[in-house]
Design a protein around this nucleic acid. Sequence first.
DNA 1: CCTAAAACCTATAGTGACTGGAGCTTCAAG
DNA 2: CTTGAAGCTCCAGTCACTATAGGTTTTAGG
Lengths: 148, 148
Amino acid sequence: MGELSIPIGKLARSVGCKVQTIRYYEQIGLLPPPIRTAGAQRRYGEGDQQKLSFIRHARELGFPLPAVRELLALSDEADSDCAKADGIARRQLEAVNRRIAMLSSLRSELERMLRHRHGHRIRECRVIATLADHALCSQDHHAELAES
Amino acid sequence: MGELSIPIGKLARSVGCKVQTIRYYEQIGLLPPPIRTAGAQRRYGEGDQQKLSFIRHARELGFPLPAVRELLALSDEADSDCAKADGIARRQLEAVNRRIAMLSSLRSELERMLRHRHGHRIRECRVIATLADHALCSQDHHAELAES
DNA sequence: CCTAAAACCTATAGTGACTGGAGCTTCAAG
DNA sequence: CTTGAAGCTCCAGTCACTATAGGTTTTAGG
């Protein structure tokens, strides 16, 4: 069935990224070097396709490459170093939850705007205030403005 | 009360970013040029603080600067050009929903890993497969691999 | 008032994560 | 066996910051 051995361009199209991006990921060791044809062209398999698709989605969600690297490591580490995988999963889960919380409040605000717009005009737009709120975020820069 | 007029360093600390980042945002026109002291140092008010906080959170959520610019425009445009604001809000809402969907499935997978780990060892890690799934994403690169 | 450290200024260069282009080679359809 | 699309390497450019150099302003202490 699906052991494809597709060239780089097809792989790029299948995940919606540029050819050079794939070569770049290989260069920085995020993707393993694929097999090559006699003429030194890259040929990819099913696994590569999945991995790359994962990387692209994670990047679109705003995870930095180090976090992506960690998440990728989860599947390699899973059945070797359980404790390590557990720690990574736990940490990334917290990050994911924070993102969801922020996006949820932004969503509510956008929905509110679209609902209230039917009246006639929006009196006040609270989109900025919604996401400006520090209550949901990780950093400890709350109340930094207090002293002096 | 709170019409602060704080220097750039304090503003940076209050939102958890670098001083240069603020100057950069001013340079590219994302933040308005603030008032200056006699000695040409920047002094910021409450509104700037909110706006910057919003920008930082939006960026952490992975919105590119053009999208951030659009979201910022929502509040300016809100009571002037209603139709335009509506369109922006609708488009951004879709983007937000897609992000939430992807993050939710990633969360389920991470949670599943943490639950099942208690047995003894994780047999298979599906984190990558979860986020590799194209069903939830916007682009039309589904089934690109079909022909030939 | 005066000074000295901390924070500010501009300008420029460097980094991370790509993206594009030049110039050449390989692959595959006819 | 040709020929045009797609691949290759290498290098330069972009976006969104981040760091450094070299100088000025603020502000707290004496």
